[in-house]
């Protein structure tokens, strides 16, 4: 199925969980924050929250800034 991750349309397995997605993308889970359709999904909810086709996911981290 197709979802939008950070503005890019991406194919992911059906009903993938946030935790699985973070694994597929090879991200360090303790260093990222995830938003699903504008709402934050806290780390402890990652296992149970499953994506649906058309979902909009934002994954952010810290970068250099002042």
């Amino acid at each position: 199925m197709q979802v939008t991750i950070n503005g890019e349309t991406t194919s992911v397995p059906d009903s993938v969980s946030i935790a699985e997605l973070v694994g597929i993308l090879d991200l360090k889970k303790e260093r990222v924050a995830v938003e699903l359709n504008r709402g934050i999904v806290s780390r402890k909810e990652w296992e149970e929250v499953l994506l649906k086709s058309g979902d909009k996911v934002e994954i952010v981290h810290f970068v250099g800034g002042g």
Partner: peptide
């Protein structure tokens, strides 16, 4: 130290993480 919050570049993960 201050840091900014930005999208992860999903297609290019080559850059070292700030943390």
């Amino acid at each position: 130290v201050t840091v900014a919050v930005r999208r992860i570049n999903i297609s290019d993960r080559s850059r070292e993480s700030l943390l």
